[in-house]
Amino acid sequence: MASTAGMASGGGRRRRRARRGGAINEINMTPFIDVTLVLLIIFMVAAPMMSAGVPLDLPQTKAAPLNSDAKPVTLSIKATGQVFLDEAELQDQAIVGKLAEVSKKGFEERVFIRADKKVDYGRVAQVMSIVSTAGYTRVALVTEPDQR
């Protein structure tokens, strides 16, 4: 009995020693997490700067913002009178064709017109006329909220 008690207490076990300088078969997650957090911070800082569109100086009004679920089709008019769909410049003759390509709901698509406040009112009316005579009934002007 005494001999079996010694074995039960661990006297006969072999112990493995870790090799020094051998390959470690565990993944070190620290560099992965560091890189992921750095990328997250970069994208959080860069996301507000990536707002697409043509830079314009929009007029300010006291009108309330519209509730819109889907991204509307937006035409932008620079101070020089050039018309852009997203960031692509359009000639007046091509406006209707491009609107037909990008509109998902057909003539029921909401079309926003953003115009620099230095643009001649006649030019804005001309672009609105082109869009409305093409059959689009939901045309709206975009302004910035009044800061006063």
Score class of each variant (00 low, 15 high):
G22I: 12
V142P: 01
P145A: 13
I130F: 02
D120Q: 05
R16D: 12
V111F: 03
R19L: 15
L40H: 05
R110Y: 06
S9R: 11
I95L: 06
P145D: 08
K104P: 02
A88C: 07
G97I: 04
E87Q: 12
P31F: 10
G6C: 07
L141M: 14
Q147D: 09
G106A: 11
R110I: 14
I95W: 01
E89T: 05
G21I: 12
D34W: 04
V38P: 00
P55G: 01
A70Q: 10
R19G: 14
G106E: 12
A18T: 09
V124Q: 00
P145N: 09
E87G: 05
Q91M: 08
K104I: 11
T133S: 15
T61F: 02
D34C: 05
I41L: 15
G81K: 00
T4P: 02
V142G: 00
A2S: 12
A134S: 14
T80Q: 07
K118D: 02
I130Y: 01
S129T: 12
D57L: 02
V131M: 06
G97S: 10
A2H: 07
T74H: 02
K98W: 01
P72Y: 09
Q126G: 00
S132T: 15
I113M: 05
T30N: 10
A94K: 14
A52D: 04
Q60R: 14
G21D: 10
T4Q: 12
V139Q: 04
Q126P: 00
T133Y: 04
R16F: 15
Y121V: 09
P72D: 12
S129G: 15
A47H: 10
I113Q: 03
L39Y: 13
A79W: 00
A2T: 11
Q147M: 08
F84G: 02
A115R: 01
I113K: 03
D57T: 03
I77V: 04
R110F: 05
V139A: 06
L141T: 03
G6K: 09
S51F: 07
G21C: 08
Q147S: 10
R14W: 09
P55R: 01
G21A: 13
T137S: 15
A134Q: 08
R13P: 02
Q147P: 05
L58K: 03
E87P: 01
K105Y: 08
A63I: 09
P72M: 14
R15Y: 15
M49Y: 13
A100H: 02
A125N: 14
V127G: 01
M29P: 05
V96W: 00
T74E: 10
T137H: 10
V119T: 13
M128C: 04
M44I: 14
R114E: 13
P59F: 03
D34V: 07
R13I: 11
T36G: 11
L141I: 09
R19H: 11
R123W: 03
S129L: 10
A140K: 00
L85T: 09
S132G: 13
G53Y: 07
D69H: 06
A2P: 04
L66G: 04
A46S: 11
A46P: 03
